[in-house]
């Protein structure tokens, strides 16, 4: 690990100011000289591996604003302070009851120790675990733009089948983000020039030709809150995660499903897919396929087909297409059968 300067500002504006001082034109936050750290469960790992090399760490754990650490459950929304730890949110009874999908997406992620450390904002910004990205001696367009992609023809069992490009097939591994994109969440960010809100669905960028640019954020923008709208659908919601072992493993495929039902008919479905795409993935085609339909096996299967119509398999990850479809079918049927 390279030496770095460590700062622990007391306010969001001070944190943003430090980051702003070290920001450079055209350099995304993940390559900036000054980077924010909260739980450190992802960044510290990548610094030790030499993947991330910030010269300066701006520790957000000293920020004084209490709202950053609070969860507010209102009648029609949940507001998470950015520094709320995954574990706290997962264990909040009100969230489990009002929106099971949110709690499940957190509970099924990582390990107890990591959930106790990792912040919610840091969690949604976690970077891919692609093995070739993690090891600096491999070419990687995400880590070293233009160097190539070793995963494309390499060992790519855990890689994405949706949202891929010719430059990158790295999976976005997060779980919580799938719930957020399915539920139409918003993130609030703050910089010296002011605050803005970003629809969660616009936060992450597809890899396209610039997989190194992962989000819409500027290097000096601090996420301060995540807001999730609640509605009739949130109680009837689930997060189904399929993995190689029972706990502490990334999703091979997952599905976040929330259903607004009118009797047996789906008024509106909210669906996101994890473990199979390069970014948090809202499955709009599947949602549309279900809209106004009675949710039986056939309808669920048709929705799953629609969700993966554009999927592109590589040598070792072709199984993710049938697995992803069946995961969605299972999630749809289980969500339909929930007693709410």
């Amino acid at each position: 690990m390279r030496p770095f300067v460590y700062e622990r500002p007391a306010s969001v504006s001070a944190a943003a100011a430090i980051a702003s001082r070290f920001a450079a034109e055209g350099v995304p936050p993940t390559e900036a000289a000054a980077q924010f750290i909260a739980g450190g469960t992802n960044l510290a790992d990548y610094m030790r591996l030499g993947v991330a090399q910030p010269a300066r760490l701006v520790d957000l754990n000293g920020l004084g604003d209490r709202a950053l650490r609070q969860i507010e459950v209102g009648d029609d929304s949940i507001r998470f302070g950015a520094l709320v730890r995954m574990g706290e949110a997962a264990d909040t009874g009100e969230i489990k009851r009002r929106c099971p999908m949110l709690a499940e997406s957190l509970k099924f992620a990582a390990s107890g120790q990591i959930r106790n450390m990792a912040s919610l904002a840091g969690n949604v910004l976690q970077r891919t675990r692609c093995e070739y990205f993690r090891e600096t001696s491999w070419p990687c367009n995400k880590r070293e733009p233009g160097s190539g992609c070793a995963a494309m023809e390499g060992f790519n069992r855990q890689h994405a089948v949706l949202g891929t490009s010719n430059a990158c097939i790295a999976t976005y591994h997060g779980d919580f983000a799938q719930a957020l994109i399915a539920l139409g969440a918003t993130v609030e960010v703050e910089a010296r020039r002011g605050m803005r809100k970003i629809a969660f669905s616009r936060l992450h960028r597809l890899p396209r030709d610039t997989p190194n640019v992962e989000t819409e954020l500027a290097p000096d923008e601090v996420i301060t809150a995540i807001e999730v709208p609640l509605g009739a659908w949130s109680r009837r919601s689930r997060y189904v995660k399929i993995r190689d072992r029972e706990s502490y493993a990334f999703a091979l495929a997952s599905a976040a499903v929330a259903l607004d039902m009118d009797g047996d008919t789906v008024s509106q479905a909210r669906i996101a897919l994890g473990g199979v795409a390069t970014v948090p993935w809202r499955a709009r085609a599947a949602e549309e396929a279900l809209s106004g339909k009675a949710l039986d096996d056939e309808a669920a299967e048709a929705a799953a087909e629609a969700a993966f119509a554009e999927a592109k398999p590589r040598e070792h990850n072709a199984f993710k297409i049938p697995l992803g479809k069946r995961t969605l079918v299972r999630a749809l049927l289980e969500t339909r059968d929930m007693k709410v």
Binding site: R129, E246, S247
Partner: peptide, 15 residues
């Protein structure tokens, strides 16, 4: 390729 306990899976208690 998978040279750590993140990617080299062994059973955990839940298994």
């Amino acid at each position: 390729v998978n040279r750590d306990l993140q990617d080299y899976l062994v059973p955990v208690n839940a298994d």
